[in-house]
């Protein structure tokens, strides 16, 4: 345990990632209780650059960017979190069943996985999103998971395959403990760290696709970072130095959270996979 802690403090980038994740989660989930939302427009301060009154500037409706920022992260992060869980569940079930049973089950499931992996899945999601209304947070997360699982399933399968040859799994099989027991009670705990890392990566992937959908105007949510930046972009904030911050603030939220996830997952990988730490 102490070893783990010292490793964590040694990896400064990973620590920064953890801090970013915690800070942004707190801001977006706890912040709204302390900051009143911007409900009306203020015509007297449209597209203002940062100043003492408006620390992060104002947007095209005169709303303060920092208040919009505090209130706009919850949906993005909730979708990412749910999509991460859903993706991991699908991937673990497919990967585990495939690796455990082997033979024709394995080759069938891996064929399906490979086919799904090859398709232009984002385009498919875009077309689906024009028919199925992705208004609910859970629905969107579910579809993002359907898009994101195949790569992860292959990795999980590879992990399971290497675990399968261990002695204690052999013993469990000889004792005839049954597939569900062996998969969930014996094998899964052994790769929990790996699954947590996979889930964090799946979250990052979900934010990536979500941003694209929002940019195309296919996810009709209220105030969130994605909507903020695509609205600002549509209002040409990119060529207007005074309005630039209404674009940069939500983008900063997404980018910082992505960075946090990536750096943190890399740190976990280094901690749980000591081979990465040593030199060749």
């Amino acid at each position: 345990m102490r070893d783990t802690l010292s490793n964590m403090t040694r990896n400064k980038a990973g620590l920064l990632g953890l801090i970013l994740i915690v800070a942004l989660t707190l801001t977006t989930f706890v912040g709204p209780f302390f900051v009143a939302p911007e409900v009306s427009s203020h015509t007297d301060r449209i597209n203002k650059p940062p100043s003492a009154d408006n620390p992060l500037g104002t947007d095209f409706m005169g709303r303060q960017n920092w208040i919009m920022f505090v209130h706009g992260g919850r949906e993005v992060l909730t979708v990412a979190f749910l999509a991460g869980i859903f993706t991991t569940i699908i991937a673990v079930v497919v990967g585990a069943v495939s690796a455990f049973f082997g033979g024709s089950v394995d080759s069938f499931m891996m064929t399906v996985t490979d086919i799904w992996l090859t398709l232009p899945r984002f385009l498919l999601l875009v077309v689906i999103a024009t028919v199925v209304q992705l208004k609910e947070v859970t629905t969107l997360a579910f579809f993002l998971a359907i898009i994101g699982w195949p790569g992860l399933a292959r990795q999980v399968r590879a992990q399971f395959l290497s675990l399968k040859r261990r002695d204690y799994i052999e013993a469990a099989r000889l004792l005839d403990l049954g597939a569900p027991h062996i998969i969930f009670r014996e094998m899964l705990p052994g790769m929990m760290s790996y699954i947590v890392i996979a889930m964090i990566n799946a979250m990052a992937g979900a934010i990536y696709s979500q941003t694209g959908l929002v940019f195309l105007g296919l996810v009709p949510f209220g105030n969130n970072w994605g909507v903020m930046f695509s609205l600002a972009y549509a209002k040409n904030a990119i060529y207007n130095p005074n309005a630039m911050f209404s674009l940069l603030v939500p983008m900063g939220g997404i980018i910082l959270f992505q960075l946090g996830l990536v750096l943190f997952s890399r740190m976990l990988e280094e901690i749980f996979n000591p081979r990465l730490r040593q030199g060749v």
Binding site: A204, I207, Y208, T211, G212, I255, L259, V262
Partner: peptide
């Protein structure tokens, strides 16, 4: 990890 739209902007 940064979405391609954001990289472009």
């Amino acid at each position: 990890s940064i979405p391609n739209t954001l990289t472009a902007i």
